[in-house]
Design a protein around this nucleic acid. Sequence first.
DNA 1: GCTGAAATCGCCTAACG
DNA 2: CGTTAGGCGATTTCAGC
Lengths: 166, 166
Amino acid sequence: MAGAKLDPIDRHILAELQADGRMTNVELAKRVGISAPPCLRRVRTLEEQGYIRGYHAEIDSRELGFEVQVFAMVRLNSQAESDLTAFEERCRSWPLVRECHMLNGEIDFILKCVAPDLSSFQSFLTGDLLKAPNVANVKTSLVIRGSKDEPGVPFEVLEERIARQA
Amino acid sequence: MAGAKLDPIDRHILAELQADGRMTNVELAKRVGISAPPCLRRVRTLEEQGYIRGYHAEIDSRELGFEVQVFAMVRLNSQAESDLTAFEERCRSWPLVRECHMLNGEIDFILKCVAPDLSSFQSFLTGDLLKAPNVANVKTSLVIRGSKDEPGVPFEVLEERIARQA
DNA sequence: GCTGAAATCGCCTAACG
DNA sequence: CGTTAGGCGATTTCAGC
């Protein structure tokens, strides 16, 4: 099972840093029950091994004037690998597209977009996304309100699974 | 226009902390071109005013054994406000549901879920989500691969807008 | 191997101009 | 906003388990 190479302290460190990524190392060490130096070494190792991909401030995009959030469901004409990667590359170049996921089923890609207002989004939609090569059609849905937003790992589930198999 | 209360240094601080939330204050101060104490004061103010909602380590969920990501499109029978909030509350209680957004159009909610494997997700789907009161139907789409994942604010767009209106 | 203790170094964070 | 300065955290070194 993946993640089993980590001992309980490592998992505790990850959970704490996911909840508060700016915690000082001594505070982190106190919480996970070891002293500061080994705690710091563990954090560095977790970073090097790719368990921690980075640290980010969570910014309120609405406060900064991005009032609109939209999900766009995209269907392509061709699903050849080169066409898929070409579309992915385009998504990476569009700043209003914050996430892009390739899906199975009828929809090829789902995009999470932000925009200052509806008209900005519309001009992106008609001027960029719908004009991109190979795009067959796009269905968009406005986010009325956010109900839950906790990207990351549910450590409760992880611990439960590990406890059960132990 | 929102976000206009912030001067260029504040926006620069936000952009830097979004990119690296664990940067030291002196490093941050150096990058935005002021000395450390006023930089720290600005960060505290941005936190208090809600521009910064928190700091989080970005954890590789696949490395921790969550191999499956799924989008679930949910339609409810009733869209009365009390029924909507009841469903939102349920989503908050399900750890496998990491995001839940209320949408306009045919689909009432879109859920981003993670799970250790397909069978765990299936048991959540049939045992919890589909059995929840008021759920009319659920369409799920597996994430084949992630193409872009940069939650947060596109500061390039923000700066461009501010420059244009100046 | 791992941890923890001590010491150094650098950062944080007041107080003041 | 900058400078100063005292205290605290980060990080290395080294010894012990």
